[in-house]
């Protein structure tokens, strides 16, 4: 394992410290935590419901990179691939509550759900109005009574964008939570890996793939997917993922939003080629794409791979996705 780090145990605090130092006009660190909160001038001036997200580290720019005007009010970073602790989340909640309440955006992992729940209980004890929504856009895992449910992956960033825009526009907490749930229910993702990520504390890739193999349906923490296959041309990969995702949507009218997401070690060049194939096939299928975005948004350390997210989007949502924000990573 070759990585540009110092001590393994210092990775997260040093990363957050670097991010904050390099972007002090946008964000500041909440003392004693690895949580960051908006530091722009508008933050203090304009009242809105606070929007807080967070999760294990290793998915940068998610979440800290999305803190800013029009997106998150604060983000909490846990250890690599490990949910942050309730006290840190609680500090973030307190730092952003302006009396209008706080919405928590949580990815569906038992650790995250439990830690955010505990933080919520702590905030409720302080009489802070608080709600949470749980993102579970990864359709490669079946949603059955026998599992934890579907995982939250790249679609999270679209949820954060729409909720951030709605919160900025003055929407109240209950409506935000309802909107968030609707957006989540309309957002579907599948990812593929060419090479697994190496967790620094582990020191070797989470799984092995042959020189010509890819895995469909992987998660963002080296969770295995639904099948290992020979690598195909980008066009075929795009076709396979589109087919899988679009089968989830019975109604193909109206607009869709598309996110092509790099997993960390896959260059933009490949992401754009894949985007070209995705957008060509959707156009041929007469699917109207109202918004599209390509880049490393929700990564998995140095995983080589890509994910495709498609959202059936209201016209309003498309507008909200397109609104300018002042964040590091959007």
């Amino acid at each position: 394992m070759k990585k540009i780090i110092n001590k393994t145990e210092d990775i997260v605090p040093e990363m957050i410290s670097g991010l904050v130092k390099a972007n002090s006009d946008l964000v500041k660190q909440i003392e004693g935590t690895t949580a960051v909160v908006r530091n722009d001038s508008k933050f203090a001036e304009e009242k809105q419901v606070g929007v807080v997200s967070g999760g294990g580290s290793g998915h940068e720019p998610l979440h800290a990179g999305y803190v800013g005007d029009g997106m998150l009010s604060a983000a909490v970073a846990g250890e690599v691939f490990t949910s942050p602790t309730p006290d840190q989340i609680y500090e973030a909640i307190k730092a952003v509550d302006q009396g209008l309440g706080v919405l928590l955006i949580v990815k569906n992992y038992s650790g995250d759900v439990m830690n955010f729940d505990m933080a919520k209980e702590m905030a409720e004890a302080d009489d802070i109005k608080i709600k949470s929504i749980v993102v579970n856009d990864d359709i490669s895992v079946e949603n059955s009574e026998f599992t934890q449910g579907k995982r939250g992956v790249a679609g999270t960033v679209l949820v954060e964008k729409i909720i951030g825009a709605a919160a900025r526009s003055g929407m109240n907490l209950d409506d935000l939570a309802n909107l968030g749930q609707k957006v989540i229910d309309s957002t579907k993702t599948v990812g593929i890996a060419l090479h697994a990520a190496t967790v620094p504390a582990v020191g070797h890739p989470g799984f092995e793939l042959g020189d010509d193999e890819i895995e469909y349906g992987i998660g963002i923490h080296n969770e295995r997917g639904y099948s290992v296959e020979k690598i195909q041309p980008s066009k075929e990969l795009a076709h396979e993922l589109i087919k899988k995702i679009m089968s989830e949507f019975s109604d193909r009218t109206g607009h869709f939003a598309v996110l092509i997401n790099g997993m960390g070690a896959t260059p933009l060049m490949e992401q754009y080629i894949f985007a070209n194939d995705v957008l060509n096939e959707l156009a041929a299928d007469k699917i109207s794409v109202g918004f599209s975005k390509v880049g490393n948004q929700v990564t998995s350390l140095d995983m080589q791979g890509i994910s495709l997210t498609i959202m059936k989007a209201d016209d309003d949502w498309i507008k909200m996705l397109k609104e300018p924000v002042t964040t590091i990573g959007w």
Binding site: G56, G78, E79, T82, S83, P84, T85, P86, D87, S110, G111, M114, N115, D117, M118
Partner: peptide, 15 residues
Amino acid sequence: MIQKVGGAPGPLYGT
């Protein structure tokens, strides 16, 4: 444990 573990076992053992 609640304040330092995170992940699943923090809230579980903590609770």
